[in-house]
């Protein structure tokens, strides 16, 4: 089974712990990302996640492979939610098992940081005032002035 998985709705870590069980491992570290009720001064009511799944799984697996290379860990899995999520739901979960705890803490942090930066997943926030917007989207954050993407113009 893939080490990076998408699921519909809130993540249930217990569904995925089997990938980490190993009698050689004395430590298990996890990170849970929860849907919170505020962001950037807005009161959030609910979220939607959307992903480019084919590339997302490939990039997510690359991140897990990097963690297995860089840290003395035995197993690592990341699961990300898609679709509609309510406040308190689990949007993302990372689990790492290792012989000793230090490596598992480091790998868990590495995986969640890289996933947030690299995996093609988008989050739409729905606010209590009825407004909504895609997070990290310039045109959503302010009145759009049309310009080509920076990488096209040589950036």
């Amino acid at each position: 089974m893939s080490t990076f998985r998408f699921v519909r709705g809130s993540v249930s870590p217990t569904d995925h712990l089997g990938s980490l069980r190993d009698q050689a491992c004395g430590g298990y570290v996890s990170f849970e990302g929860w849907v919170r009720n505020h962001n950037d001064g807005h009161q959030v009511q609910r979220l939607e996640y959307e992903a480019y799944e084919n590339l997302g799984v490939k990039e997510g697996e690359r991140i897990i492979d990097e963690a297995l290379e860089r840290f003395q860990i035995e197993h690592a899995v990341c699961v990300h939610a898609l679709g509609d999520l309510a406040l308190g739901d689990m949007a993302v979960w990372v689990g790492v098992s290792s012989h000793h705890r230090d490596a598992a803490f480091g790998a868990c942090r590495y995986i969640i940081d890289e996933v947030k930066h690299r995996v093609p997943i988008w989050k739409k926030e729905h606010y209590t005032d009825g407004d909504s917007g895609w997070v990290n989207c310039e045109a959503c954050a302010s009145a759009a002035t049309r310009s080509p993407p920076a990488s096209v113009s040589g950036g």
Binding site: N136, E138, P148
Partner: peptide, 24 residues
């Protein structure tokens, strides 16, 4: 991208990346 931008007038979204055949 330029051809499609002419049709759709894409909004300014920040720095875009691109994938071809499911790879960056």
């Amino acid at each position: 991208y330029a051809e499609l931008d002419g049709r759709h007038e894409f909004p300014a979204l920040g720095q875009l990346k691109v994938a071809v055949n499911d790879e960056f």
